[in-house]
Design a protein around this nucleic acid. Structure first.
Lengths: 211, 211
DNA sequence: CGCTAACATGAAGTGGAGTTCACTTTCAAG
DNA sequence: CTTGAAAGTGAACTCCACTTCATGTTAGCG
């Protein structure tokens, strides 16, 4: 999912190709630092070094360090949202046995594909500002979940579907965090139990599947 | 729950009463700073100022800042554990309708009583070292939950009870975090839904209550 | 080719957090 | 009362992350 550069809160929108390439490399390096060295190493100097760029260049684009975090967070969440949308579409073609669990699995796949996300979101870099900036994307994920629930429980109270979707996202966040803390691939036992839990909850609140 | 001072990783165990009083005041101030000014203000200088004590005194007791965090975390978790034990005992006297939900409520009560816990545990002060140091207490909480589950589902597979207890604690952590982010008292709607969720899960995994 | 604006550079500046330590004061045992 | 140990003090020190800016370089238009 591509975003317009000015969505990233940049200082200057680069016009020359050379400049755009550098911006890309800085973000790439930021991701790499998070993955390979973790949140504590996420310093502007380190990012610049890994990007093969002087610190000054980083500040040409980003007003401050927080803006880099924000830009990365938006990119990460965008990818997660895409995965959930894909899960929703796949579910519409042929209904999955445990819709809530499928959402969790989609998110887990995103966590695996983007280890940097874990470091950023759970490693102490997340601030209220970052939460605010990513709220729309996270809302869109909840909306996708609502869509999935609507396929399986078409006659349920729409408001109730909203509530359940929100719970799936909220508790999924915490459960995934723990699963990925235990193992870089996400503790399979915990993930399985989590799916069971979400599924039990959805059935209780929305009724047995009507399909 | 009182702990021996040497459990706190102190540099010197204070022998004189005056000194013990100061140590108490430092921890008190640390708690206060967390509650009133949040994790970002949690600096050694600030703590010392609020305690009405010079920085040097803080370092007389604690080898470094991390030790203060650890000492506080132990104190907080100890209180949470006490609350869960109390819930377990109350449940043994007269069985509660939703045991898993009762555990969540006990923890929620602890969060309300100790706002500093939220700032410490979810505010960026928690490190792996702090997690490690508090692991035993958290294990003891899980054990209390197992005890509660055993009252309600005495014929269930003991291992399964362990699994369910762990899930209650793990997901409870995430759910409470979100509930208390939304409101200092813990968003009631979210808490109610969370109880429903835990309850549905426990019944699914352990069967309908056998009492 | 010349020239202006965009871009690149990295050494230096700033600020604040954590920590130390040489010195002073207080305690309490003998 | 004496005296050694414990406790207290806070200015100073170290360290490091973030940020700036004066100067040099490149791009690309006319």
């Amino acid at each position: 999912m591509d975003r317009a550069p000015d969505d990233l809160g940049l200082r200057h929108v680069p016009t020359q190709a050379r400049s755009r390439e550098r911006l890309r490399r800085v973000l790439e390096a930021a991701d790499e630092v998070l993955i390979r060295e973790g949140a504590p190493a996420f310093t502007t100097t380190r990012i610049a070094t890994v990007a093969g760029v002087p610190v000054g260049s980083v500040y040409r684009y980003f007003p401050d360090k927080a803006a880099i975090v924000e830009a990365l967070a938006l990119r990460y969440w965008g990818e997660l949202a895409d995965l959930v949308v894909a899960a929703a579409e796949s579910d519409e073609r042929s209904a999955l046995p445990d819709p809530a669990g499928a959402v969790l699995e989609a998110l887990a796949a995103g966590f695996r594909a983007r280890p940097g996300f874990l470091a950023l979101w759970y490693g102490g870099l997340r601030t209220e500002a970052v939460r605010d900036a990513t709220r729309p994307v996270r809302e869109s994920i909840a909306a996708s979940v609502v869509r999935i629930l609507a396929v399986h429980w078409p006659h349920a109270d729409p408001e109730l579907r909203e509530v359940v979707a929100r719970m799936v996202v909220v508790s999924g966040d915490g459960l995934l965090r723990e699963a990925f803390r235990r193992s870089p691939e996400g503790d399979p036992a915990l993930l399985t139990e989590s799916r069971a839990m979400l599924d039990a909850y959805a059935r209780l609140r929305l009724g047995e599947s009507e399909r």
